[in-house]
């Protein structure tokens, strides 16, 4: 089914959304990714990834409040859907299973 397959960057985005307590905005997600991966993440890439995830129904977005740091404009806040959480966990299961095989062989 379409939506079950996600790429590495989409996975990272999904995890970043999951990692936050409050529904995060684009800027916060980017901050988080750059902090964890210590690589540069462009805003365009984040938009593109989140767009794809939203189209696949793995995240939803809504508009939050305006803050002065944003020149008084509203921000878009992202939340993971049930389908998104399931997909993230499925990816995790696959990875864990594969690592287990690798470690068992040692």
């Amino acid at each position: 089914m379409k939506g079950d397959q996600i790429g590495e960057f989409e996975e990272l985005l999904l995890l970043a959304v999951l990692a936050m307590v409050e529904p995060p905005a684009v800027v916060a997600i980017r901050q988080h990714l750059e902090g964890v991966t210590s690589r540069r993440v462009s805003l365009g890439a984040v938009y593109a990834g989140l767009d794809r995830l939203e189209r696949k129904g793995l995240v939803t977005s809504s508009f939050g409040d305006a803050t002065p740091a944003r020149g008084g404009k509203r921000k878009r806040l992202f939340e993971i859907t049930r389908n998104g959480r399931r997909t993230a966990e499925a990816v995790r299961r696959v990875r864990n299973a594969m690592w287990k095989i690798i470690e068992d062989r040692r």
Partner: peptide
């Protein structure tokens, strides 16, 4: 509007 605000905040 959203993108401009994100850029400014960053």
């Amino acid at each position: 509007a959203e993108v401009e605000a994100d850029l400014l905040e960053s």
